[in-house]
């Protein structure tokens, strides 16, 4: 069943802040096997001009994926998450995420399209720090496959 177009433009209130810790960044960098010292050594990060260790470019997804649960689980939207696959992902950075950040995500349903019976939903997440400064915007495209298709 096609999703309701009237949800386009719907916004969700900013999430409670996610506090980014050095050890979480280290854990993520190790999980993707990336030994770049900017992720684990504050001195190496400072040598590059950052105030503390920074997170890998795809790390913000950890925060926005968590936040998106509110949108995909919105009973009024009625998305069948068991049929959803991740179609596209995009990030536009003002600066890298770094240790000590307290980040809130404000989400908007940017578009809803129906393509060959599949629902295609784009959720935009605006990520700001505690001072209200923009850090990164993320776009997650979800494709809900039509019922009956494997």
């Amino acid at each position: 069943m096609a999703l309701d177009q009237s949800f386009v433009g719907r916004t969700y209130p900013p999430t409670a802040p996610y506090e980014v810790g050095r050890e979480k960044i280290r854990e993520f960098a190790e999980a993707v096997g990336d030994p770049n010292p900017a992720y684990t050594d504050p001195e190496a990060a400072k040598a590059l001009g950052h105030p503390d260790v920074i997170a890998p470019p795809t790390f913000p997804f950890v925060i926005t994926y968590r936040a998106a649960a509110e949108v995909v689980g919105d009973p009024q939207l009625g998305l069948d998450f068991s049929r959803v696959v991740h179609g596209d992902q995009k990030f536009a950075y003002t600066r890298p995420v770094r240790a000590g950040d307290r980040l809130a995500v404000a989400q908007t349903i940017e578009s809803i399209k129906s393509l060959a019976g599949n629902d295609v939903l784009v959720i935009r997440g605006e990520v700001h720090d505690e001072a209200g400064e923009h850090v990164v915007t993320t776009w997650m495209k979800l494709v809900a496959r039509a019922a009956g298709e494997a």
């Binding site: 179609g87 990030f91 536009a92």
Partner: peptide
């Protein structure tokens, strides 16, 4: 580049 903080935009399609 050496500095992961130099990435301004990044997008992919799966």
């Amino acid at each position: 580049t050496g500095d992961p903080g130099a990435v301004v935009e990044y997008g992919v399609r799966f």
